[in-house]
């Protein structure tokens, strides 16, 4: 079994010897960990799932582009169906224990095996760590002056574009992750941002972490301007950019507790912007000044 430590949480992946997936795991290499006795979960491959059916608790929107097509609550746990996007043939089915401590992945399309494995691990990770003050976020992250600056928005709005504008125009910038960083509220209450093995289309898998500098929502506009969000607006931004299904009452409570701590501890902004160098000048002018 392989062990990987992401944002301080170690999980296990058990693949059969010689499985084609074994040679496709480069993005996980920076996160390889020694074996631990108590991984947060273990994912293995299955030839069949015996716990089928159950109550439908989530159904993805056809236009969403989300890889989770449907989620069922079954007597023994959960089953998630995944596809490249809703409407496409299913890539895999994932069975998860009730407490997300183990998962079994049934691959249905061999060519989409890595896609399925990535999604299965992200799903288990987000669900299992929701009670550990940990958020799997949809964001692009720039590190500058030793702090992590996150750009949040729905896909296609310009998170990655804004990161690349910082890389070109703001000296001392580097990319930490381009799609799915992990955000944790640490014991002392400060918020730490971690790279992960999941980064969307950009291969940026850094096992590094930095204290959060700011969370900034990106909004397309015909001008560049940045404004601070109040707690209510900041909560809405963090809420809508975090993975996890709030309909499970415990997960809902746990996520709320983490959202509230993140909002209470982090400066949050909204950036109206064009995809130009001036946008990076405007955002960096305000955000870097917070820590001068």
């Amino acid at each position: 079994m392989n062990y990987y430590k992401v944002a301080g949480h170690t999980f296990g992946v058990k693949l059969p010897d010689g499985d084609p997936l074994c040679s496709q795991l480069a993005q996980y290499e920076p996160f390889i960990s020694p074996a631990v006795p108590d991984p947060i979960f273990v994912l293995s491959l299955a030839d069949s799932l015996d716990d089928e059916g159950g109550e439908l608790v989530y159904s993805g929107e056809p236009q969403s582009g989300e890889p989770i097509v449907r989620l069922f609550s079954t007597p023994g746990g959960w089953i998630s169906e995944m596809a490249i996007c809703p409407g496409r043939p299913l890539s895999a089915k994932l069975f998860m224990e009730k407490d997300f401590s183990a998962g079994k992945l049934l691959l249905l399309r061999p060519r989409e095996a890595l896609f399925s494995l990535n999604n299965a691990l992200m799903l288990l990770y987000a669900f299992r760590t929701s009670g550990m003050h940990t958020l799997e976020m949809h964001a692009s992250v720039i590190v500058n002056s030793g702090r992590a600056f996150l750009w949040l928005a729905t896909s296609g709005t310009g998170k990655s574009t804004h990161s690349s504008l910082w890389l070109k125009n703001v000296p001392g910038s580097k990319l930490l992750n381009d799609d799915n960083p992990i955000v944790r509220v640490m014991e002392d209450g400060h918020v730490e941002v971690f790279g992960s093995p999941w980064s969307g289309k950009t291969p940026c898998y850094k096992n590094e972490h930095y204290p959060a500098g700011a969370f900034t929502r990106i909004r397309r506009a015909d001008h560049n301007a940045i404004a601070r969000l109040n707690n209510f607006e900041a909560y809405a931004m963090i809420y809508s950019s975090s993975s996890g299904f709030k309909f499970d009452p415990k997960m809902g409570d746990d996520l709320h507790s983490t959202f509230e701590k993140v909002v209470g501890a982090s400066p949050c902004f909204v950036l109206d912007c064009l995809p130009d160098a001036d946008a990076a000048r405007v955002s960096s002018g305000t955000l870097l000044k917070l820590y001068e």
Binding site: N231, K246, E260, V263
Partner: peptide, 13 residues
């Protein structure tokens, strides 16, 4: 309750 303010969020399926 969000930092002392009351909010309603959609959490149910």
């Amino acid at each position: 309750t969000l930092l002392g303010e009351h909010i309603i969020v959609a959490e149910g399926k």
